[in-house]
C-alpha cells in the first residue's frame, strides 16, 4: 500500500463546551477515493473544514506527504495542494467557465489578463478529466446543467496541481445520469493520482466509487476500512451506532 498523502492523528476540535471531533484519525492515499460518511452532526463538515484550514483544530497532528504540517488558514491548505469543492459550488453565473476556473488566481501578462493561456490550460484540464459534456468553455456558467456545474467546480479544484481534493456531497442535487457522470469524474480524479475525500450520504454512491470508507460517529472515527472488506449493511451500522460486528474499531489497530 502507498504512503498516505494526508494523514491525521488525534485531531480534536471543540466549539465552546461542544466537543465536535474526538481523537479523529484519517488516512488519505493518493490514487484512492476515501469516502467520509456519517450521520448529520457526526462532524464531517468540521473535519473537512479543519483539513481545508477554515477551522484550526485544538490539537492533533497533520502529516502531508510524510511531513508534519501546520495548517492555520485556507491559504496554507491551498499552498499544500488541498482543494475543496463545496456543496453549493461557489461559481459565478455571469462569468464563463474559464473565468470561473481561474477566479482569484488569474494568469496575467503584466497587468493584463492572459486569456489565451487561461483558456488553453482550462481546456487541457477538462480534457485530462475526459470531460466532453461542455460544448464551449466560453459559455457562461448560467447556461450549464447541474452536473456540468459540478464538473466545472471539480475541474477548478484540480487545475492547480492539487494533490488532495475534498468533495462535499457532489451528487446531492443531481439526477441519475448526472450523478453517474460526476461519479465517473470522481473516479478519474483518483485514477489521475490524486487523493480524493468524498463526503456522501448515499451508500450506493460510496460503494460505486470509493476505495475505502471512513465512518464518523458522534465525533469519533468509528472505522476506516477498505471497501471490499465490508458490505453496505455494516457501513450503515457504523454510521448509526458506531460499531458493527466484524469491523475493527479505528485506532485499535
Amino acid at each position: 500500500m502507498t504512503e498516505p498523502i494526508l494523514s491525521l492523528r488525534g485531531v480534536n476540535k471543540s466549539f465552546g463546551p461542544v466537543h465536535v471531533l474526538k481523537d479523529v484519525n484519517l488516512d488519505v492515499h493518493p490514487g484512492q477515493v476515501t469516502a467520509l460518511v456519517g450521520d448529520n452532526g457526526a462532524g464531517k463538515s468540521t473535519l473537512i473544514k479543519c483539513i481545508a484550514g477554515i477551522y484550526t483544530p485544538d490539537h492533533g497532528e497533520f502529516k502531508f506527504d510524510g511531513k508534519v504540517v501546520n495548517i492555520t488558514g485556507p491559504r496554507d491548505a491551498t499552498a499544500l495542494g488541498i482543494e475543496i469543492v463545496y456543496q453549493d459550488l461557489a461559481l459565478c453565473d455571469n462569468l464563463d467557465i474559464v473565468h470561473n476556473m481561474f477566479l482569484g488566481r488569474e494568469v496575467k501578462k503584466g497587468p493584463v489578463l492572459d486569456e489565451s493561456a487561461m483558456e488553453s490550460l482550462a481546456r487541457k484540464t477538462l480534457d485530462s478529466l475526459s470531460v466532453r459534456t461542455v460544448k464551449s468553455i466560453r459559455q457562461t456558467v448560467a447556461s450549464l446543467s447541474g452536473g456540468q456545474r459540478q464538473t466545472v467546480a471539480i475541474a477548478k479544484a484540480v487545475l492547480w496541481n492539487s494533490k488532495v481534493v475534498i468533495l462535499d456531497e457532489p451528487t446531492a442535487a443531481l439526477g441519475v445520469a448526472q450523478t453517474e457522470q460526476v461519479l465517473n469524474l470522481v473516479r478519474r480524479l483518483a485514477d489521475n493520482g490524486l487523493g480524493v475525500i468524498l463526503i456522501s450520504h448515499n451508500i450506493n454512491d460510496v460503494f460505486e466509487v470509493a476505495d475505502n470508507i471512513a465512518a464518523l460517529y458522534l465525533g469519533t472515527m468509528a472505522a476506516q476500512v477498505a471497501k471490499n472488506e465490508v458490505i453496505p449493511r455494516q457501513v450503515i451500522e457504523l454510521i448509526t451506532t458506531g460499531v458493527s460486528a466484524g469491523v475493527e474499531k479505528a485506532g485499535v489497530k
Partner: peptide, 13 residues
Amino acid sequence: RHIYAVGGNAEAA
C-alpha cells in the same frame, strides 16, 4: 474580472 465576480456571486468571489 473581480468586479464582475462580486456582482455575480459575492460568496463565490
